[in-house]
Nucleic acid binder design. Structure first.
Lengths: 247, 247
DNA sequence: AAGTGGTCTAGACCACTAC
DNA sequence: TAGTGGTCTAGACCACTTT
C-alpha cells in the first residue's frame, strides 16, 4: 500500500465516520504533511484523489472542505403526460412543481440542416431543414439541464414553436394542437464525464458525471418521430424516476 | 494557461483529430518531456488529467494508449413484461437476447434484517426478516452489473426464490405464480463515481462513472412493494432505454 | 502581510513488462 | 537488461483569499 493511498483512506474513513463533517475544513497541507510525515506532493496526491471521487472540495486561498451533499431533485420522466400539458405545463415546469423548485429557462431558436445522426433518428434526409431549440434550464437560478431539441421544419413551419416563446404546455402542446397526436417517447440514458464546456455552463464540480439523454417523441399512427431532444443533466443534482407498467 | 493544461489540450486535439487513434501508443514520458520542454511531473499531470476524463489508458511497464471506445449495450428497461417472463426469461436474460451478448450470473442468497432504508421502501418494520439475493451479472464474461435484491421474508417463505436457482423467468415469475400479481415497477436512476470496491468487481477503468438504480416492484391492488433491487451498472458499457407512453 | 492551495523543477528509487 | 510508468522528496515561485 502506497503512502498516498493510506492517507486518502484515512481521510475517507474520517469523513465517513463523521469526524470531518460536510462543509467542514480539513487540516491544511502543511498540517497533513506533519501528521503523516510525508512530503507536500504526497499529501496533495492523496487529496486530489478524493477530489476526483467527489468527496472533497478545494478552494484556492481558502483551504480544503468536505464536499456538502448537494440537493437532489427527483425528475419524474413518466410525467410527459397529456394531462399536464392541458394544464399548460411543459415537462420541465411539471418537474419543478413536483420537486418544488423555481424554474427558469433561456432559449435560443435557430434553423439548420440535419446531420447524419439527426436525419437517421428523425427519419428524414440528411441536410433537410430542421428547427433547433437550445435551452438552458435552471433550478432556483442554478443551471441544471442543457437541452437541444430538433424538429423537422416540414412539421413546424409557421407554428409558434418557431418563436422563442413556445407558449403554455411547450413544444408538445403545440404539436398536438397542430394535429400531431403524440403516441410515445423513447429515452436512451447514458452517463459520462462532462466536457470542459459542460463543466462551465452547468457549473459542475470536479468528479461530477453527467446524464446524457436522447429523447425521441413519436406521433400519429403508424408512429413517426417528430422531435429529437438531446439532454445533458448535472449528475449530482438529479435522479431520474421512471415508472414501468408490468403490462 | 498553465503548461500542463496546454499539453493536455494539445494531446486531446490530436486524439480528436485522429492523429492518435484508439488503442494506439502515445509518446513516452521522456519523449513528451522533450517535445514540450517541461519536467516529467508536468507531463504526468497533463496525462493523468486525460486519464480522469476517460480519454487515455496507462498500463505500467507498457506505456500510454488512447482508450478504445468500449462496446455499449442497450438495456431495454421497459421489457420487464409478463410476456417475457412467460417465455422463461428474467429481465437480464431478456436484455441479453435483445442486445446479443452471452449472459452469466453469480448468485449469493442470504437472510438478514431490514435496515432503516429497506424497511421504509418495502413498507415493513425495521428489523423484519428479509431475503437477500446478491448477483453479479456478466456479459460475455465481463462483469457489467451488480444487483442486490431484497424481499420481505413473509412473502418468500418456502418459495424457490430462497434457493440460488430461482428457476425460469426469475424472481418475478415465481412471485406471480405465488399469486403476487405484479402491477408496476419504479426505477430511480442516479449517477455517481464508483467506490474502490466497485471499481474492482466491475473491473472499471479510471474516469468511469456508474449508474446506481433503485428499483421497487409493486404487486396486488392496492399495489404494495414486494421487492427492492439495488443495481449498479458500469457506465461505459450500457445505455438504459425507457419507453414512455404519451397516455 | 500571512496563509492557503497551484504549478513546476530536478532527481531518486521502485515495480512491472518486454526482450 | 532496458524501458515503461508509479511513488516520493525538497524546494522554489505564483495566485488568490483573508486579516
Amino acid at each position: 500500500m502506497t503512502k498516498w493511498r493510506q492517507i486518502a483512506d484515512a481521510l475517507r474513513e474520517k469523513i465517513e465516520a463523521g469526524e470531518y463533517r460536510p462543509g467542514q475544513r480539513l487540516p491544511t497541507e502543511p498540517e497533513l504533511q506533519e501528521q503523516y510525515d510525508v512530503s507536500r506532493n504526497t499529501v496533495r496526491q492523496a487529496v486530489s484523489s478524493l477530489v476526483a471521487e467527489g468527496l472533497l472540495l478545494v478552494e484556492r486561498g481558502q483551504g480544503t472542505r468536505v464536499r456538502p451533499r448537494s440537493e437532489v431533485r427527483r425528475l419524474a420522466r413518466s410525467r410527459l403526460s397529456r394531462e399536464e400539458r392541458k394544464q399548460g405545463r411543459g415537462a420541465f415546469l411539471s418537474d419543478a412543481t413536483q420537486a418544488g423548485f423555481t424554474p427558469s429557462v433561456q432559449v435560443r431558436v435557430s434553423v439548420g440542416q440535419a446531420d447524419t445522426r439527426t436525419a437517421e433518428l428523425l427519419q428524414i434526409a440528411e441536410g433537410d431543414s430542421v428547427l433547433r431549440r437550445e435551452r438552458i434550464m435552471s433550478a432556483d437560478g442554478r443551471p441544471m439541464q442543457l437541452a437541444t431539441s430538433q424538429l423537422p421544419r416540414s412539421i413546424t413551419h409557421g407554428m409558434q414553436i418557431e418563436e422563442e416563446e413556445s407558449g403554455p404546455g411547450g413544444t408538445y402542446a403545440r404539436l398536438e394542437e397542430a394535429g400531431h397526436h403524440l403516441s410515445h417517447f423513447v429515452e436512451e440514458v447514458a452517463v459520462r464525464m462532462p466536457s470542459a464546456a459542460e463543466v462551465e455552463t452547468l457549473q459542475l464540480l470536479p468528479g461530477t458525471p453527467v446524464f446524457a439523454i436522447t429523447r425521441i417523441a413519436y406521433a400519429g399512427s403508424p408512429a413517426k418521430p417528430v422531435e429529437l431532444n438531446d439532454i445533458v443533466l448535472a449528475g449530482d443534482q438529479v435522479r431520474l424516476v421512471y415508472e414501468i407498467p408490468a403490462e
